[in-house]
């Protein structure tokens, strides 16, 4: 091989960017942490779909998971805010600029404990953003205390057994108004990638609870959030694939085997049946399936519930089409005659 040979051309996406702007700083999380795999999926998905980095706002709370927005999308603004409060900050940011794509990364401490109030109200409002819970059942940064998603009977590294009922964020999401609810596993590359792509296409709030093992504090025998436990107990509802709106569909659907869902932006979500027929638009079925799986000790993954066409927060607020943040003075300060009129009324 000649030494002078040109380097292979960089792979670019459909908007002509290579992967570099989609990458972030070097991770400071533990080697093997599930969160790092999720960051990689986010990079991959946004690169492949050709999302403009400047259009994304990376939002987080506090914790191991909340550090990760520093590790992807270096050309996107990011906000590592206050523990459990990413929903409020993100809601505000999206009210200010409706053109932003909000990607929120939180943990189970953020979402299921300190910030559960904000989480619930964000769901009610159908804030149009992607909300990822990197769920490992423990507090990593404070060295391994149980979180509120730890399963009953799960064992802490120190040997303590959790006696309390876990909070299932997906069940809450379905009950409280999330319009796209999925569960996945950081180790299931293909499924997580396709789910995240569908989230990008969804108009409204999409909630993804990703079981993301903590290699340092919760990957031992007796933990129900360890790699080996999740691999053994994961039960995928369907095989998820995604065809973006700008690509032609090449494979015909086999009747009865695959559900094809056309998403708001024209992309197609394809759910291939695995064992049972599952209709993700049926709320009651979704709740039953999750509850049954919990009873039998299985971790149900896939797209659990979706509802299209519901008004988002932006619709409810009746805002102008342009971002409020950059409206010129002429559109946000009424004229002197308006003030004069108000004063006359008060005389």
């Amino acid at each position: 091989m000649s030494a002078a040979a040109a380097p292979p051309p960089k792979k670019v996406n459909r908007i002509g960017l290579d992967v570099l702007p989609y990458k972030g700083g070097k991770t400071t999380l533990c080697a093997g942490c599930g969160h790092n795999s999720i960051s990689e999926r986010i990079i991959e998905v946004l690169f492949e779909l050709g999302i403009e980095p400047h259009s994304v706002a990376k939002m987080s709370g506090i914790g191991c998971s909340s550090k990760t927005p520093a590790y992807f999308l270096s050309q996107s603004h990011g906000f590592n805010s206050v523990h459990g409060r990413a929903p409020a900050v993100s809601t505000g940011a999206l009210m200010a600029n409706r053109d932003l794509r909000g990607i929120v990364v939180t943990g189970d401490g953020d979402t299921a404990s300190i910030g559960i109030g904000q989480f619930i109200h964000m769901l009610r409002r159908n804030v149009p953003l992607v909300y990822i819970i990197e769920n490992n059942g423990v507090y990593g940064l404070t060295k391994g205390q149980f979180s509120a998603t730890a399963d009953r009977g799960s064992k802490q590294k120190s040997g303590v057994i959790n006696d309390m009922t876990p909070i299932d964020c997906c069940l809450m999401g379905i009950e409280l108004g999330a319009t796209f609810v999925a569960r996945s596993f950081s180790g299931d590359k293909k499924q997580l990638t396709n789910i995240l792509k569908a989230c990008v296409s969804h108009r409204g709030l999409s909630l993804v609870d990703v079981i993301s093992p903590c290699v340092t504090f919760n990957d031992h025998e007796g933990s129900t959030k360890s790699y080996s436990y999740v691999k053994e107990h994961e039960m995928a509802l369907h095989d998820v694939s995604y065809v973006p709106y700008y690509e032609e569909i090449q494979v015909d659907i086999e009747e009865g085997e695959v559900r094809d869902v056309t998403m708001h932006d024209g992309s197609h979500l394809r759910l291939k049946k695995l064992g049972r027929d599952y209709d993700p638009t049926n709320k009651r079925q979704a709740v039953d399936a999750i509850t049954d799986a919990e009873k039998s000790g299985e971790i149900l993954t896939g797209i659990l519930y979706m509802e299209q066409g519901r008004d988002t927060l932006h619709d409810m607020l009746g805002m102008v089409d342009e971002p409020l943040a950059t409206l010129p003075q002429s559109r946000v300060r009424p004229g002197p005659e308006a003030l004069a009129r108000m004063m006359e009324e008060l005389r």
Binding site: F79, S81, R85, P87, V89, S90, A93, A96, Q118, A325
Partner: peptide, 18 residues
Amino acid sequence: EDELAAVGMVIGASWAGA
């Protein structure tokens, strides 16, 4: 939902330029 969220939204909105 509370004052904490109210000011959090203000911080988020101001950060984004409102």
